[in-house]
Design a protein around this nucleic acid. Structure first.
Length: 254
DNA sequence: ATGGCCTCGGTTCGAGGA
């Protein structure tokens, strides 16, 4: 079973790339973030024609998440029931016995800003909700754009980024608190190339210069981590015409 | 040199992303 997360930065713009990638990579579950589409504009027919069922929750301009699945989905939940939030950033479904949570964690903008405080509150609430979910779903996968680079290895230039949003101590502590629930960062279960990232700024020719961050993650609860046989970052779509600034992260469960 | 690019809404610029 292949579980994937991909921040597509507008599904309206990126739908052809999503369909192309799925044609080349027939995965079981694809979690999308930043669809930026209201539900009435979601391309259900195109995705179903590609052989996927879909659950989604969106809004105008910003945010929006979706789960594409080859298999039936049940217990679909939109948003964190423990966190009042206008922004559409979470959708969850149970697929083949796996509780799949697709999350677009807030960016935080700048350390100390209102948006940063919102990010930290949001992460606290996520932690508390997942602690509950794990009681009833021991096989739980948390996929998404975390907007956190957990370690200096996940940053192209740790000195330049030190203390900045996406790498600050409080954000990393919040990531660690998720790991403390028992989750494993599937990427780090395996030997990986150095300087492999999941996001590169559109500016500064950052992709060509590999000035990136690893901020998109697949976290697995213990029973799933035990079944995980690989995790790769697929840089290929970042080289396509008009790419998303993020690229897919693929975890394989045996 | 602290910018650079991309997307959106809605108009030709500002906000937000990371």
């Amino acid at each position: 079973m292949k579980l994937v997360t991909w921040n597509v930065n507008s599904l309206k713009v990126r739908l052809p790339q999503v369909l192309q990638w799925l044609a080349e990579n027939p995965v079981d579950v694809l979690c999308l973030q930043e669809t930026k589409l209201t539900d009435d504009k979601f391309p259900v027919a195109e995705i179903e024609a590609a052989g996927y069922q879909v659950a989604f929750t969106g809004q105008k301009t910003y945010n929006g998440v979706a789960i594409l699945s080859k298999h039936p989905m049940s217990e679909v939940v939109k948003n964190n029931p423990r966190f009042e939030d206008e922004q559409q950033r979470i959708i969850a479904a149970t697929i083949e016995g796996v509780r799949v949570v697709c999350a677009y964690i807030p960016n935080g903008q700048a350390v100390g800003s209102d948006k940063y405080q919102y990010k930290l509150r949001w992460l606290d609430a996520l932690h508390d909700w997942l602690a509950d979910e794990l009681k009833t779903h021991e096989s739980l996968a948390l996929l998404g754009d975390y907007n956190i680079a957990p370690d200096d290895r996940d940053v192209h230039d740790p000195v330049a980024w030190q203390g900045q949003v996406l790498v600050s101590d409080l954000e990393r502590a919040a990531f660690q608190r998720l790991l403390d629930l028992g989750f494993k960062d599937s990427f780090r279960l395996f030997e990986q190339p150095e300087k492999l990232f999941s996001w590169w700024d559109y500016r500064m020719m950052a992709f060509r210069r590999n000035m990136g961050l690893r901020i998109d993650h697949v976290l697995l609860s213990p029973p799933l981590a035990a079944r995980c046989t690989g995790c790769i970052i697929d840089k290929a779509p970042r080289k396509w015409e008009q790419p998303s600034d993020h690229t897919p992260v693929v975890a394989t469960i045996e």
